[in-house]
C-alpha cells in the first residue's frame, strides 16, 4: 500500500473544516468514487475535523490517495493535541458526547467508512484515521 498523493492541511477554524471536506470530495470525484461514497467520506471527515477543532483545540489533517494490491482508496488522518479521550469504547457509542453534540460523531463516522482507527492519550491528543476503498 503506497500513497500516490498526499496533502497536509491545518485545522484551526470552522472555515478550514469546510475546506478540508471540499478537498476530500474533489479528490474522490477525480478518482470516480460514486456520489454516495463521496458524500459518506466527506461527512465522516467533517465529523472528525469538527471534533479536532471544537474539542481538540485545533490540529491538522492529512489527506492521502492510496494504491496497492489492486485497489485504490482515500485516507484522511485527523490529529489534534487536545485533552484526548480516556474511554474510547464509551466515546464510540452513539449517545455519548462530551460537548454539545448529538454524540454521533465518532460512532457515526465509523459507520460511514471502510476502515476506522483511533489512538488517543489523555492529555496528549487524539489521532483518527479513516479510509474508504473503491
Amino acid at each position: 500500500m503506497t500513497a500516490t498523493k498526499s496533502r497536509t492541511m491545518p485545522l484551526d477554524s470552522c472555515e478550514e473544516i469546510v475546506h478540508l471536506r471540499q478537498t476530500t470530495r474533489s479528490w474522490m470525484a477525480e478518482q470516480r468514487f460514486t456520489l454516495v461514497e463521496q458524500t459518506k467520506m466527506m461527512t465522516a471527515t467533517s465529523e472528525l475535523a469538527r471534533n479536532a477543532v471544537v474539542y481538540g483545540g485545533g490540529g491538522s489533517a492529512k489527506l492521502e490517495l492510496l494504491e496497492g494490491s489492486g485497489r485504490m482508496g482515500i485516507r484522511v488522518v485527523v490529529e489534534d493535541q487536545g485533552p484526548g479521550i480516556a474511554d474510547i469504547g464509551q466515546a464510540m457509542t452513539d449517545h455519548f458526547t462530551s460537548g454539545q453534540g448529538m454524540g454521533l460523531g465518532l460512532g457515526g463516522a465509523k459507520r460511514l467508512v471502510d476502515d476506522f482507527e483511533i489512538r488517543s492519550e489523555p492529555g496528549k491528543g487524539t489521532v483518527v484515521s479513516i479510509t474508504k476503498w473503491k
Binding site: 454516495v36 458524500t39 459518506k40 452513539d94 454521533l104 457515526g108 459507520r111
Partner: peptide, 14 residues
C-alpha cells in the same frame, strides 16, 4: 434533500 445526503444521514444514525 439529495438522495446521497439522505442515505448518509441515515447511516450516520440521525
Amino acid at each position: 434533500m439529495q438522495p446521497a445526503v439522505a442515505i448518509t444521514i441515515v447511516e450516520l444514525g440521525m
